[in-house]
């Protein structure tokens, strides 16, 4: 029986998680894999915590992933990676931006964001961890809008994804306007 693959994308509403999810799904479909996904759409998109669940493989009933069953978490923000870490399989892989984004609640003293503690927690609890300096990536690539593709590239490099660069590139070419193709290709190969 072919192995199912469970992927979680998580971040903050507006960061581009939904497009990344669609790229993964499109690439998997090209490979002839069955795909089911579940998206956060609605109120949480206004700067709240959002997630997408992506399930690849034929032996899948529900679009949601059970806790402890994700092979890969792609996080657009480190605290969001920790928020979803209970979903990760033993020995699973995490690819995350290391750049913290502070919600207003932390600035006005309504919640805490201990950045070092959160990054350490990831380092201590994830064996296959890739930290992506997304601020540096944005400077190098000249755009902060392709973080989703940078992270997908890093996920391919981590070895936790059965899809390869060409699969994702093909999906990008079909979904993204041509004038952004070069930028996206650079983003995919950034890490």
């Amino acid at each position: 029986m072919p192995r199912n693959e469970n992927i979680i994308l998580c971040g903050i509403g507006g960061q581009g998680t939904i497009l990344a999810s669609k790229l993964l799904a499109a690439a998997a479909m090209k490979r002839g894999m069955a795909v089911k996904t579940a998206e956060t759409i609605g109120m949480a998109q206004r700067g709240g915590s959002v997630f997408s669940h992506i399930r690849l493989g034929d032996d899948v009933h529900a679009p949601l992933i059970a806790p402890g069953q994700a092979d890969l978490i792609i996080a657009f923000e480190p605290a969001e990676a920790v928020r979803h870490l209970h979903m990760l399989k033993e020995g699973g892989c995490v690819v995350t931006s290391s750049h913290p984004i502070f919600p207003t609640s932390t600035l006005i003293g309504q919640s805490q964001y201990p950045v070092e503690e959160i990054l350490d927690y990831l380092k201590n609890h994830v064996s296959n961890l890739t930290l992506v300096d997304s601020e540096q990536a944005a400077k190098d690539l000249g755009s902060a809008r392709v973080l989703n593709v940078v992270l997908l590239g890093a996920a391919i490099r981590s070895g936790a994804l059965s899809l390869n660069e060409d699969d994702i590139l093909e999906a990008i070419h079909e979904r993204v306007a041509e004038r952004f193709h070069a930028l996206n290709e650079n983003a995919l190969r950034y890490v």
């Binding site: 206004r46 209970h86 919600p103 919640s111 503690e117 609890h125």
Partner: peptide, 18 residues
């Protein structure tokens, strides 16, 4: 249930006005 270490405090991130 997997015994896991207690999580560090996480920022509360409710939806907000843009």
């Amino acid at each position: 249930a997997k015994q896991s270490d207690p999580l560090p405090p996480l920022p509360v991130r409710p939806p907000v006005l843009c």
